[in-house]
Amino acid sequence: MSHNENTQGLLSELRQQTGQNAARCYQCGKCSAGCPMAQEMSLRPHDIMRAIASGHEQRLFEGDSIWLCLTCETCTARCPNECDPARVIDFLREKALAKNPKKAPRPIRAFHKAFIRQIRTHGRVYEMGLIADYKLSGGALFQDVSAAPGMMARGKLALMPSTIDGIADVRRIVDACLAKSHGDHGEEA
């Protein structure tokens, strides 16, 4: 690993877009100590903060660590130094998708894609449609298949989607946001 990488690129981009300063992290590890997914991640929350601060951009987008974050916000709630790792990870996921969508783990990517597509189509999410779409676009095809009858029997799955009146509105909002996927709201002037 070269140590001549520019630490400013991602660090300042993060700061500009989210107001978060990864250089602030003093690596106490309290975030990773409380992270429910830490044992499954190759880069734990404090590693992620460190990788940004030292400009190891590639490392961040290589594995699936950023995709394993559940956004349970435990890290952010307990950070003694007022960092917001959960927000930082959201930023990285957005950036990863913009860079190369294929890098995200397939089931997770498929889920998010199906979810947003549901919103775009109906304005609301209908689980039946969501599950079908998710499975078709790359989620585990046979996982939980046996659950569907149970769900149905309990009246938990609406079969027929109904669409909201303002669907045109929602569609426009989704398209506009996806088009300008990089906002600039980090620090106010």
Binding site: C28, K30, C31, A33, A38, D47
Partner: peptide
């Protein structure tokens, strides 16, 4: 152990500690 503790709580006779060793990279 280099790291802060995320949470501690009483569990029967003992106190449970959830920490992280940032030098070895292991949750404790």
């Amino acid at each position: 152990v280099r790291g802060r503790v995320s949470r501690l709580y009483r569990d029967g006779e003992v106190i449970k500690i959830l920490g992280f060793d940032t030098l070895s990279g292991e949750p404790i």
